[in-house]
Nucleic acid binder design. Structure first.
Lengths: 335, 335
DNA sequence: AAAACAAAATGAAAGCATTTATGGACAAGG
DNA sequence: CCTTGTCCATAAATGCTTTCATTTTGTTTT
């Protein structure tokens, strides 16, 4: 069933059918109705390829994320997908993994698929070395690229980020004010947002003259997949003599590991031991006591990201970078 | 940059360029090299729309899931995506939500996008009423449809499921054998897999003459999003006089709520109170003690699903339904 | 070495299903 | 009778694949 069949059965030219299909107003009500009736009767849907060929767009946005089973990223994808669809766009999702090579491959794939824009979900797409970010610049030369929780000053790249620095800074100050002195920072990555969080922690600690040498604990493979391993890591450090009574974690899963560690050590939470998480994910309410965590308003970020993207696609001038502030959700792991 | 430009610069016809592009062997090494050189030099990539128009396929599979932020579904999507890409297929993901209407809309969208096949991730796509499953039959009339953890006897629909019945049956028997008598079943849905799990529990309980009237507890909105609400639900039931010392949960999040409930009631786990989860998700290792949970070999299921799909697409005869058995992962919440 | 034939390599052109620019027919208004 | 505007059809354009015909190359045969 093609547009020719419809035009024949409706007794009009294919151009008229096309106009009806695309909502052109240069069609009389009468013929429009006749055409629509035929279309409905035969359940005709236009061929997406041919349409794409003619229009050179398929109203599709490419979404890239390193790992869609990551809690935070999955949630972001959910919001983004939903909002795109509400605006008549579809999406193609690529789970890229964490390697530059696979990311580049996915990027090319999306470009090949003729997406109208690309959204990079998560800060792990940005590399230290500028040359490693070339794949983003290349893509941006073709279509607008949106960054969620990352930042890159390149033409046609737009960023929407949460103010991780301030959130961490204030949360750290709060913990210090409750009397905890030996606070360590527990993190897994030094991506864009990771660095900002770390800086917030450091600034607060330095201000209060509490920064010693040993309070940066990194566990590279920190994700919810291996909370037990992270817990063991802390226990080992403890056995080696590293003691602390407060943990600022870069992610809820790290925070959860800290809670489990504290339990194993026999600390009472929050009397003897404080923990702050990040992302306010479902993990926050999974442990006992529930995690105090920072909520970075993911839905707001996503909403803004889509709005910006749609603006860019419509040819409007849009802000290159937007920052939203987060919120500390006080629960049971801090005083 | 089109195929015409390349053909001109390489001094051959567009047919030859096309043949080089598609790996046809009817082209001499010499011209092949010359054409490839030009292609590389100008970084030419064929237009996907035009190609699709000609071939009437884009090597793309549509994936539908109700909610990609669901832990289990997200993981499934991850596996599926990865395995598809390894086989040269791309995917379009649609998060459909739980309404029949939005599911139907997503289905139509994928068909419109000319996907080569559709994968429905999760058992919530199947409805009780046959007429509600018409949207699946309609889709299957166009492209093969794969069901993960669901079952439907319709032409061109293929199922890969885990043997939830047996897993639950055996896990329930095990719990009974440890001496727990008053075991309730805590669940949230009566989808295909939900029903199978329930049946497993009931069969075991009936066999041991332990089935009373009050041991089916349903909490409709049970997902990791509202573990606190589920916990409260159990507490309320307790206050109304419903007492029990064992919980078989249809999902890890429900199990986690049960653990939190037991804690609040002052039960010791597993001495006074036993809990069994399902899916062996990350939640299993997030609580204290860690959850005993049933692992249904998700990666194996996904691998098999893709293999079957690729087989169908290649025109081979493939099994309509495949069943894999699960495994009980013993941890701290059962004796 | 030429002729005959088969096989391989290539090109021309016909799809594929749309969109859209161009222009024609017709009716209404002056 | 001319102009204007509405509605619609014709035809070109989009970038590729693929069939079919043709040319080139290679292999036998004489």
């Amino acid at each position: 069933m093609t547009i020719y069949d419809i035009s024949e059965k409706a007794g009009v030219s294919i151009a008229t059918v096309s106009r009806v299909l695309n909502g052109s107003n240069n069609v009389s009500e009468k013929t429009k109705k006749r055409v629509l009736d035929v279309i409905n009767q035969y359940e005709y849907t236009p061929n997406a390829f041919a349409r794409g060929l003619g229009l050179n767009t398929m109203k599709t946005i490419g979404i890239m994320c390193a790992d869609s089973s990551d809690l935070y990223l999955a949630k972001a994808i959910y919001y983004i997908e939903q909002k795109l669809r509400a605006n008549g766009y579809d999406s193609i999702l690529c789970c890229t993994g964490y390697e530059l090579e696979t990311k580049t491959a996915s990027m090319n794939l999306l470009i090949t698929k003729k997406v109208d824009g690309i959204i990079l979900v998560g800060s792990n797409f940005i590399y230290e070395k500028d040359s490693d970010n070339k794949y983003i610049a290349d893509a941006a030369a073709q279509v607008p690229v949106m960054l969620l929780n990352a930042d890159l000053d390149i033409p046609n790249v737009y960023s929407v980020v949460s103010d991780d620095f301030t959130s961490m800074y204030e949360a750290t100050l709060q913990m210090i004010q409750t009397g905890v002195k030996d606070i360590v920072y527990f993190y897994n990555s030094t991506s864009y947002s990771g660095k900002r969080k770390l800086a917030g922690y450091r600034t607060a600690m330095e201000e209060k003259k509490l920064l010693s040498g040993a309070n940066l604990l990194q566990f590279y493979h920190g994700s919810h997949e291996n909370i037990p391993a992270m817990t063991q890591h802390l226990v080992k450090l403890h056995e080696k003599g590293l003691k602390f009574h407060g943990v600022i974690a870069a992610d809820d899963s790290l925070a959860l590991a800290a809670v489990k560690y504290a339990r194993e050590m026999g600390y009472r939470i929050p009397e003897d031991f404080s923990v702050l998480g990040y992302n306010n994910s479902l993990l926050s309410v999974c442990c006992e006591p529930e995690l105090t965590s920072i909520d970075n308003k993911l839905e707001t970020l996503c909403q803004h990201l889509i709005t910006t993207l749609l603006g860019v696609l419509a040819g409007n001038e849009m802000p290159k970078k937007t920052i939203f502030s987060g919120e500390i959700i006080k629960r049971g792991t801090t005083r």
